[in-house]
Amino acid sequence: MNKVPGYLDPLLILSTALMGCALYLIFIWVPTETNQGAIQRILYFHVPIAWGSMLGIFVVSASSILYLWKKDQKWDRLAVSSAEVGLTFGAMMLLSGMIWARPVWGVWWTGEAKLTTALILFFIYVAYLMFRSYFPPGTQRQRIAAVIGVIGALDAPIIYFAANLWSQAHPPLITGPAADADSTLGSELGIVLLMSTFAFTLLFVYMVQARYKIRRSEDDIVDLKRATTTPGVS
């Protein structure tokens, strides 16, 4: 049993500290970008979150492949944990992106390739988690879920390619967003972005391992229940 109180978890302390530094850099240190104004500060939040959700997809597909290969429970636990955390990051990525797009592009949503890809991938991983909750527990569920995890990752580049082709055929009404233009910030932008990405990556790792522990507890309960119903096995 874990005797250390949860708030002393070194990962939590470290990610909180880093997040504090990142927030200081985002809000106080970095100067306001002149073309977009204060709203540009969303970028320091949006990009690391998007990175986190991509990391989530990567971990899901990698651990799904490892599960199909090694048939080890821990890879399945890792896959479902990072899918759930990745989906949380994905929802935040879509929300922060939309709120940024409204004042800068003048629309909440447009058929741009990255946006379309992000949305469709979001749906694929929603389906992944829904599948896990619908399917009766057992190794078959884990195997099929792993297959879906791999297919989602395989589909990602095709979706991006298609969405790119598609958005070329349909030039959006609002083009040339200020975001594409040269930023008036040079190295400062890079520093803040790096710091923020680092903080969010740690937060991602913390959340995945917290979710992983829950998943393991759930498995423990199943084992314990089996032990209590069949006396003499424990």
């Binding site: 469709i120 749906f123 389906a127 829904m130 589909d155 979706i159 298609a162 969405a163």
Partner: peptide, 15 residues
């Protein structure tokens, strides 16, 4: 479940 899995994956084909 089937449409939820099927439709997002075939989006490129649909496009």
């Amino acid at each position: 479940m089937l449409p939820l899995l099927f439709l997002p994956v075939v989006t490129p084909l649909l496009m």
